[in-house]
Write a protein that binds this DNA or RNA. Structure first.
Lengths: 221, 221
DNA sequence: ATATTGTATATTGGATCCAATTTTTCTATC
DNA sequence: GATAGAAAAATTGGATCCAATATACAATAT
């Protein structure tokens, strides 16, 4: 008897599913700052008991995406202007270094993929997708750094501020500038100029941070 | 009626207690790499049910301190040489920057505390305490950077490699050199030379990483 | 004797129930 | 009608019980 080999992959646990869904909802901004997260309500949404929900909430709290208080429950964490500023500063430091380390390892395939993401970003008209494509562009280059720990940190940092970034990315001029900066970074990568790519990445992140902070200061005032 | 003001602090939940205890045991090296963590056994140790234990394990997994597999359980995570190397490289980047940012904010009190930790490190003979004092010294300076997010990241990074570092810190020559480097960093801080303090911190971390990696390569061969 | 199959045990993930505490609602009183 | 206090509802953290699966070991066939 002949059978095709089937990749029986481990099914994710309920806690994993709930965690992934809530994380996505928070970084997408579908759950807004300060919003209450009732264990019971979430459990019903996912057709589970509160146990896996609590585990998911506990993980989210570890990553700073929510805060919890006994007998009170969990709320989506908000960030102060100062905290947002600090995270952008941190990202600029780490992502610039990741970019520097990535350039020597970039091959044609990776560069082609990055170019596709870059073009896609320029052509996309659905503002809801900009954030996602933006991540894809940067990550496709960052991956060449072969620094999984750095990338994990970048991911958790980005998770914290992504929803604010998306709010600001809906402003068209922000997208235009981001697109120009992406092209400049890509050009530096094609030239193999690690220092330039690193500096441009740093400025790209700091720029985004500055305009976001300005946007939020205005909005919150 | 007069009552002394009592700091009624929120009692930590059982999950918090278990998490803290396990985290400490892992970073202190009391739980060794690959060691099995049975929920039932841990629950009995802390006189609780498995529920808070599972929550604690879930958090530890998020921080990379353990790995879990369904129906198999949790084991203390081990790090490859490459992973350790990467974490030291990362720490060097971030801690150098934190040090640079801290120097302009250092006041007499902070410097005095750092000096005390530095001297304590030189005088301490109990090798088990070196790791702890080492952290105190660096953190006392880092705190002046006023960058809570950076510091949180530094903490989780240090958590991952602390037990290896402690194993290596038992070698007296490692402590001697660390002590000299601490004094040099402190001197740069006293001079208010942020660039120098930053560079020395970077080298201090990279040095520790290099000798640790050499030590482990030898040990694991 | 060895390999294979079946069974018992160990262990995890999840459901349901309980205790503690907060928040809300209702009621009695002014 | 407003307010203080009590009862009810809501909500969380934890304990106990159940289902699913892996591992260890015994029984059996070759």
């Amino acid at each position: 008897m002949k059978l095709a080999a089937v990749d029986v992959r481990q099914a994710a646990s309920a806690a994993d599913i709930v965690y992934d869904a809530l994380r996505k909802a928070i970084i997408d901004g579908d759950l807004t700052e300060g919003e209450n997260l009732r264990q019971d309500q979430i459990a019903q949404m996912f057709n589970t008991s509160r146990i896996p929900v609590r585990e998911a909430l506990s993980r989210l709290e570890q990553h700073g995406l929510i805060t919890t208080e006994r007998y009170k429950g969990a709320v989506v964490a908000g960030l102060s202007i100062e905290e947002i500023d600090e995270i952008f500063e941190f990202r600029a430091l780490v992502e610039a270094e990741v970019m520097r380390l990535a350039v020597p390892n970039l091959d044609h395939e990776t560069l082609a993929a990055a170019r596709r993401h870059c073009e896609e970003f320029g052509l996309e008209t659905d503002s809801a997708r900009w954030g996602e494509i933006n991540r894809s562009f940067h990550y496709s280059l960052y991956a060449a750094s072969k620094r999984p720990y750095y990338l994990q940190i970048v991911r958790t940092s980005l998770d914290r501020i992504d929803r604010y970034l998306r709010a600001q990315l809906t402003l068209t001029n922000g997208v235009m500038r981001a697109n120009r900066e992406h092209e400049a970074i890509l050009a530096a990568c094609l030239k193999g100029d690690a220092e330039l790519a690193s500096r441009l990445t740093r400025d790209h992140v700091l720029d985004a941070g500055r305009s976001l902070v300005a946007f939020l200061k205005d909005q919150r005032a």
